[in-house]
C-alpha cells in the first residue's frame, strides 16, 4: 500500500482548504470502506486522507416531518436505520442502507460515502434519486446544492470540483400517500454488489387508485446510476395496474445500456431491469 498522510479535520473549511491545496491526490475519508480498499489495491493514488468524522456538519442526522431529512455526509448506515421516523419516511433509502456490505461494513460506511464513491452499482444512489435528494456541497467559494441525479458523472467520477466536498444530503419530507422501495439483484443474499439495482418512489391519490407521480432510478446498467425520467413520467395519472407498471418497466429497459462483466452479462442486466423495476414499483405501492 502506498504511503500517505492523514489529517483529522475539525471544520469544513479546514477540510476544504486542504482539498484545495492538495488537489486530486487528497481524498476525504469517512467510512473508508471503499477508499481504503482502493488505495490498498492501487486503484487510486492518494497522498493525503482527510478524515472528516470529527466535523459536526457531516454528522448531522436530523429529520423533521415538515422540512425533511438532513443526512450528514459521514453518518454511518447503522445510525440511519436506527431512527424509526426515518425508516417510516424513506423506506427505500433504508432498504439500501441495510444491504450495503455486511453488518460490520454498515458500522463504518455511510450514504454520503456511497454517493461520493460514485459506483454505477451504488445501492444508496437510486433511492436518493427517487426521493429527490439534493447534495449540499462546500467548496472554496462557499456552499452549493445539486440534485443527486446530477452528482455522478462517470464510474468513480463526481461533479465535485477541486476543493469541494459533500457536507450533507437533503431529502424533502415525503408527500402523503407516498412511499419508496429499493431492491437489487445479487446471486447471493448478502455481501454482494448489485448486478442491477432499482429504486422507485410512488405517490398515489387519496383513493390510492391512481398514481399521482412516480420516480424510478436504476443502478449498474450505465456508467452512472440513472434517473429513468420517461419511465417515471409515463406513470403520472395512470391507474395502478400491471399494464402501467409493465410499460414503465419497458421504458426503463430502453434506457439501460449495461456492460458484461464478472458480476453479470449485458443481456441478463437488461432483462433484470424489467423485473426489478416492476418489483420496485409494486413494492413502493404496497407500502403506501
Amino acid at each position: 500500500m502506498q504511503d500517505f498522510g492523514y489529517v483529522a479535520a475539525k471544520t469544513v473549511s479546514e477540510a476544504v482548504t486542504l482539498l484545495d491545496e492538495k488537489g486530486q491526490t487528497a481524498r476525504i475519508l469517512a467510512g473508508g470502506t471503499d477508499l481504503i480498499v482502493q488505495v490498498r489495491e492501487a486503484r487510486r493514488d492518494v497522498d493525503l486522507m482527510i478524515d472528516i468524522k470529527s466535523i459536526p456538519e457531516v454528522n448531522v442526522l436530523d429529520y423533521n416531518a415538515d422540512t425533511g431529512l438532513t443526512l450528514g455526509a459521514a453518518v454511518e448506515c447503522y445510525k440511519v436505520y436506527a431512527v424509526d421516523e426515518i425508516c417510516n419516511a424513506y423506506p427505500g433509502l433504508i432498504d439500501a442502507t441495510k444491504i450495503i456490505g455486511g453488518t460490520a461494513i454498515q458500522g463504518r460506511a455511510g450514504v454520503g460515502g456511497n454517493l461520493c464513491n460514485a459506483s454505477p452499482a451504488a445501492d444508496c444512489i437510486p433511492p436518493l434519486i427517487v426521493l429527490n435528494a439534493t447534495a449540499v456541497i462546500a467548496g472554496p467559494n462557499g456552499e452549493r446544492e445539486l440534485p443527486v441525479e446530477q452528482f455522478c458523472t462517470g464510474p468513480g467520477q463526481t461533479a465535485l470540483e477541486n476543493g469541494e466536498m459533500l457536507v450533507s444530503m437533503k431529502i424533502p419530507a415525503p408527500a402523503s400517500n407516498s412511499s419508496s422501495f429499493y431492491l437489487r439483484f445479487i446471486p447471493r443474499n448478502e455481501m454482494d454488489i448489485a448486478v442491477v439495482g432499482a429504486g422507485a418512489s410512488v405517490t398515489l391519490d387519496d383513493a390510492k387508485q391512481t398514481i399521482v407521480s412516480a420516480r424510478i432510478s436504476l443502478g449498474a446498467v450505465a456508467p452512472t446510476p440513472l434517473f429513468a425520467e420517461e419511465a417515471s413520467a409515463l406513470l403520472a395519472g395512470r391507474e395502478v395496474s400491471d399494464a402501467a407498471i409493465d410499460e414503465a418497466a419497458a421504458a426503463a429497459q430502453a434506457i439501460a445500456r449495461p456492460i458484461s462483466d464478472m458480476r453479470g452479462t449485458a443481456e441478463q442486466r437488461t432483462h433484470l431491469v424489467g423485473v426489478l423495476t416492476r418489483r420496485a414499483l409494486n413494492g413502493a405501492i404496497q407500502r403506501i
Binding site: 446471486p187 447471493r188 443474499n189
Partner: peptide, 14 residues
C-alpha cells in the same frame, strides 16, 4: 473475480 466479494462463496444467509 479474484476476491471474496466476487468469487461468491455461500454466506450463512444463503
Amino acid at each position: 473475480n479474484a476476491s471474496f466479494l466476487d468469487y461468491r462463496m455461500p454466506t450463512c444467509l444463503d
